[in-house]
């Protein structure tokens, strides 16, 4: 289980005092992870950038108003991004926007070891078989290192629901990645 690092406590303390250097550090530290998460769920770098911009600017507005995260900065930022994504998909269903999945396009031409390339493509394809919610919990758990309690906060669900989602997701991934587990 991930516990709050002293680093986070210091960051939050100075952030609440609107220290410019700390606010800059928070962006440097967390924006790449939030961007990866948003990009993987939205499938477009442009839309993912809008999500990151709104999430981080929203965080600054909260700090300015003396609100903002009290204990878990990382979970707070992912939660903001999650809310943005949920809202986006809600609107999308009305507007019927076509998303260009540029995720695979973005690295098709990149040179890296053949074996690594096969594994990466395999993983992405397996992830794409998951529902948005399953994909979210898998990314938060195994890519960003959040525990079930933190994930529950991010996606507004109970820890039991998170556990169930993770179970269904890993079962699907095992099948697609051709693993057989010992039950």
């Amino acid at each position: 289980m991930r516990t709050m690092q002293p680093n986070d406590i210091e960051l939050l303390k100075s952030a609440q005092q609107s220290d410019a250097g700390t606010l800059a550090r928070i962006y440097e530290e967390y924006s790449p992870a939030v961007f990866r998460y948003a990009f993987r769920l939205l499938g477009s770098s442009q839309i993912a950038e809008d999500c990151v911009a709104d999430s981080f600017l929203g965080f600054l507005t909260a700090v300015e108003m003396g609100k903002g995260p009290q204990e878990n900065l990382k979970a707070y930022l992912f939660r903001s991004a999650h809310n943005w994504i949920v809202d986006f998909y809600r609107k999308k269903s009305h507007l019927d926007i076509d998303l260009d999945d540029d995720f695979i396009d973005s690295f098709v031409n990149v040179e890296f070891e053949a074996e690594n390339r096969i594994r990466v493509i395999e993983t992405i394809k397996a992830l794409d078989q998951l529902t948005i919610e399953q994909k979210e919990v898998v990314l938060l758990r195994y890519s960003e290192g959040l525990d079930n309690k933190e994930i529950a906060k991010v996606i507004h669900k109970t820890q039991g629901a998170v556990k169930a989602l993770l179970h269904r997701a890993t079962t699907s991934l095992q099948k697609d990645l051709e693993y057989e587990t010992n039950k």
Partner: peptide, 26 residues
């Protein structure tokens, strides 16, 4: 999943425009 995050070129880079907007407000 760590491989996905760390392999160069898999994820596009977040533009500096977003960063500049954030830093100006900060």
């Amino acid at each position: 999943l760590q491989e996905l995050s760390s392999t160069e070129g898999v994820y596009p880079l977040l533009s500096t425009e977003v960063r500049n907007k954030y830093l100006r407000k900060a």
